Amino acid sequence: MKIIENSLKSSHIKIAIVVARFNEFINKNLLDGAISTLKLVGQISYENIHTIWVPGVCEIPLTIKNLIMKKRYNGFITIGTIIKGETLHFEIISRDLNVIISNISIENNVPIISSILYLNNIQQGIDRAGAKLGNRGSDAALSLLEMINLLKNI
């Protein structure tokens, strides 16, 4: 039996992180967690980590699709925060966004790890961006490192 195990070190790769500006006070902490993990665990140089800011989460898929066409990156992290309000906006975006991003990943055979938080309130975002419940940006970076190495090894 062959077992494929993957290292998290990927020092010679390029990563793009697409971050929504809307709810920036939470997203900035997620971004910091992702970059820190890519540098410390993945040993990726700062020059090989590119951050692209977009207005909101709805602009993330198109941006990722265009970045993939440039063929410069080995993988992507998406960062955004959607906080439930009084309208249907939350439900519509929440339902469709992950499906769209997953489809882009599968169609282009490139790992895209989502750190888009779907929240009931601001406190949940603060807790998941480094306060009480770890940092979901850091978690996304770990998943991306593993997936890049896994795809190389299979």
Rank of each mutant, 00 (worst) to 15 (best):
K2I: 15
I3A: 07
I4F: 06
N6P: 05
N6Y: 09
S7A: 05
S7L: 05
L8F: 12
K9A: 03
K9M: 05
S11F: 00
I13F: 01
K14V: 00
I15W: 04
A16N: 02
V18L: 01
R21Q: 14
N23H: 02
F25Q: 13
F25P: 00
L30G: 12
L30D: 13
L30H: 13
L30T: 14
L31K: 13
D32R: 03
D32F: 02
D32H: 01
A34R: 04
S36L: 14
S36Y: 12
T37L: 07
L38H: 03
K39N: 04
K39H: 03
K39W: 01
G42P: 03
Q43E: 15
I44V: 14
I49F: 11
I49L: 12
H50A: 09
T51S: 10
T51C: 11
T51A: 04
I52H: 01
W53C: 05
P55C: 11
G56Q: 07
G56Y: 06
E59H: 00
E59W: 03
E59G: 01
I60M: 07
I60C: 07
P61I: 10
P61A: 08
L62G: 05
I64A: 03
N66F: 09
N66C: 04
I68L: 03
I68K: 01
I68A: 01
M69K: 15
M69Q: 15
K71L: 07
K71Y: 04
R72F: 12
R72I: 13
Y73G: 03
N74W: 01
G75F: 11
G75M: 13
I77E: 02
T78C: 10
I79C: 13
G80P: 04
T81H: 01
I83F: 09
K84C: 07
E86R: 13
H89V: 06
F90L: 08
F90Q: 07
F90K: 08
E91F: 09
I92R: 06
I92W: 03
S94N: 15
R95A: 12
D96Q: 12
D96N: 14
D96M: 11
L97R: 04
L97N: 01
L97D: 02
S102C: 13
S102F: 06
I104M: 09
N108G: 06
N109H: 14
N109T: 07
N109Y: 10
I112R: 02
I113V: 15
S114K: 14
S114V: 00
S115M: 09
I116A: 13
L119V: 08
N120D: 15
N120I: 07
N121W: 09
I122L: 14
Q124T: 08
G125N: 08
G125H: 09
G125D: 08
I126V: 09
D127T: 05
R128H: 12
R128W: 06
L133M: 12
G134I: 11
G134S: 10
G134R: 12
G137R: 07
S138A: 15
D139T: 12
D139C: 03
A141L: 08
S143K: 13
S143H: 08
E146W: 00
M147Q: 11
I148V: 15
K152F: 07
K152T: 08
N153S: 14
